[in-house]
Design a protein around this nucleic acid. Structure first.
Length: 558
RNA sequence: GCGCUUGUAGCUCAGUGGAUAGAGCGCUACCCUGCGGAGGUAGAGGCCGUGGGUUCGAGUCCCGCCAAGCGCGCCA
């Protein structure tokens, strides 16, 4: 239960009671919005409910505010509720209560920040899912950071989360990959075979060919570009996937499931998922034949056009795979909620997939597709092109090498998914020692240092009386710490992980300010030292939680 | 041409329809005879792209325009 939720309940109770007693006109209750005022004199929280009620109630908003405020009880938590012009009710938290929350945070420990809004519902977060035709580019890093943190946030919000990577090992790109692989392989054998015009020119393909040659001897010497041996192609894909997995691991990203697109077509144990999904679409009358191809009649569901699912060649499109894949997610595995994190280049695919899911009998709201805008990279003035086909690509491992995994994650995370971001590699490298990530981690190291120092000097928080924590800096630090659960809720509800880095910075600032103003270890003031030491312990827990949610390390020394 | 997203300080970006628009970097001036100075304090710097509209109230919502990124039936 967050403070906001408590206040919301109190406001609603006060308002409805006032209406019942005739102190307020009986009008429909608008949504109760609780904001955090920008100015301290406006309290810790505020609601604009009186302003929202004024029109319907045909009353002066300030009068409404006074009526509501007078019915808000003072509690252990709440020191005062005050009406303020033009029609706010401002809430002030009780200082003793704030101080006591230090013990509450310590009791919660690593669970502090959790909110029980997910009710154990099963949500799948699918992210990155880049084609296994080459190493991950720097641009994939944004999806990796957003997806993995969103997954952590949803877990903290009480969902049962599964992280998934879709390995596209069945489509056209895989075929092109296979032909390129055979070409490189034959080149190793001294044959003058050109890689296909639409193939993958990167040097890594030569390495893959070499490794296959090394582990398979001459088994594939017969291979031709026209008919790449399936086992060889699969092995090549496997090697690429291993590389992708390693790159993601270096970024601190882990998955529960690596799902093979190919498995959708597996009919060894009865009808394939693909066949089942297509049959379902057909039964519902959403598949129509025209121009020699099979189309999903998405225009019947409000889309501006139909989409091909089976080409005139008889091969299914990627869209068909995706339909089958989402049938599998919802019907076979039964996720309550599915969250796909996609780059903006897939934007055009969003609404037709939602339509397809609807055609499969799934409420479209259960599928959320989070689009993040693409990242452009430059080195100083020079723009860097990002394409697996271009020679001049930046890989995610290059980024990690240059700025470190923590800084890379923090940087990718701190922009909202909607905003295009520009990543200047030179700048990132040059400023790395002054990157906000170090500011935040330094705060954690500083706390750890104090706590270690306390142990060495015989200080202990044992038997601390946290009610001594009445200094404004102490109180502000606690206030900031208490925002984490609310932030987790907000991020889970809106799928906006980018608030976390900003929060972490604010929390670090609150600690640094406290540290500057308040000496923790003081032989002359033992009781206060104990209380402040305990405050440090709580601050460490909250800062560590914020860092951990972001997938960053929590250094004790730097 | 159509669709999605974006335009806020010199730069990179936050900002739940509310009260005097914020942070980091950069710039200027300060603060260590005390626990980690990778820190703290203060300051300069804004017609929130632009023109209308809705509203008691708009950086935030709606419409037009300008600009940028991405996409636009059998690539993924």
């Amino acid at each position: 239960m967050t403070i906001r939720n408590d206040l919301e309940g109190m406001i609603e109770a006060a308002t409805t009671a006032a209406m019942a007693s005739g102190d307020l006109p009986q009008v429909p209750l608008p949504e109760i919005v609780i904001e955090t005022p920008a100015r301290p004199e406006h309290g810790d929280y505020a609601t604009n409910l009186p302003l929202r009620l004024a029109r319907a109630a045909r009353a002066n908003p300030l009068d409404l505010a006074k009526t509501i405020a007078s019915r808000i009880p003072v509690t252990e938590m709440l020191r005062a509720a005050e009406a303020a012009p033009p029609g706010f009710v401002n809430f002030r938290l009780s200082e003793p209560w704030l101080a006591r929350q230090v013990d509450a945070i310590l009791a919660a420990g690593a669970d502090f920040g959790n909110v029980p809004i997910g009710n154990g519902k099963r949500v799948q977060v699918e992210f990155v899912s880049a084609n296994p035709t080459g190493p991950l580019t720097a641009g994939n890093g944004r999806g990796a950071a957003i997806g993995s943190v969103l997954a952590s946030v949803l877990e903290a919000a009480g969902y049962h989360v599964e992280r998934e990577y879709l390995v596209n090992d069945a489509g056209t790109q895989t075929e092109v990959f296979g032909r390129t692989l055979v070409a490189r392989y034959q080149q190793l054998l001294g044959k003058s075979v050109e890689i296909p015009a639409d193939g993958y020119p990167g040097e890594y393909m030569i390495d893959i060919a070499k490794r296959i040659r090394a582990e398979s001897g001459d088994a594939y010497d017969y291979a031709t570009i026209d008919e790449p041996p399936p086992a060889m192609v699969l092995r090549g894909v496997e090697m690429i996937v291993e590389g992708i997995r390693a790159d993601l691991q270096r970024l601190g990203v882990h998955y529960d499931v690596w799902f093979r697109e190919r498995s959708l077509y597996d009919s060894a144990d009865g009808p394939s998922v693909y066949d089942t999904a297509m049959a379902r679409m057909r039964e519902q009358g959403f598949l129509v034949e025209k121009e020699g191809a099979l189309w999903f009649a998405s225009s019947e569901l409000g889309e501006d056009k139909d989409n091909v699912v089976i080409r005139s060649t008889g091969r299914p499109t990627y869209f068909a795979s995706d339909i089958a894949y989402h049938y599998e997610k919802f019907h076979t595995r039964g996720f309550d909620r599915v969250l796909n994190v996609w780059g903006a280049d897939h934007q055009g695919h969003v609404s037709r997939l939602k339509a397809a899911v609807q055609a499969l009998g799934v409420e479209p709201a259960r599928l959320e597709i989070l689009i993040y805008q693409l990242v452009s990279f430059r080195r100083g003035e020079e723009l860097v092109r990002l394409s697996k086909r271009s020679g001049n690509i930046v890989l995610i491992r290059d980024i990690v090498d240059e700025v470190g995994e923590d800084a890379a994650r923090f940087f990718f995370l701190s922009r909202s998914a909607d905003s295009q971001m520009e990543f200047d590699l030179e700048l990132a490298k040059r400023q790395s020692s002054e990157n906000p990530v170090y500011y935040v981690q330094y705060a954690h190291a500083r706390i750890a240092g104090i706590i270690a120092n306390a142990g060495d000097r015989g200080f202990s928080s044992e038997g601390a009386d946290v009610s001594l924590l009445s200094h404004p800096m102490e109180q502000d630090l606690v206030r900031k710490m208490l925002q984490l659960p609310e932030l987790v809720q907000l991020m889970a509800e809106r799928s906006e992980p980018h608030h976390l880095p900003h929060y972490a910075q604010e929390l670090a600032t609150a600690f640094h300010q406290f540290y500057t103003e308040c000496r923790v270890l003081d032989d002359e003031q033992m009781p206060l030292s104990k209380a402040r030491l305990r405050l440090c312990e709580a601050a460490r827990i909250v800062l560590a939680r914020a860092l951990t949610l972001m997938g960053m390390s929590t250094p004790d020394k730097m």
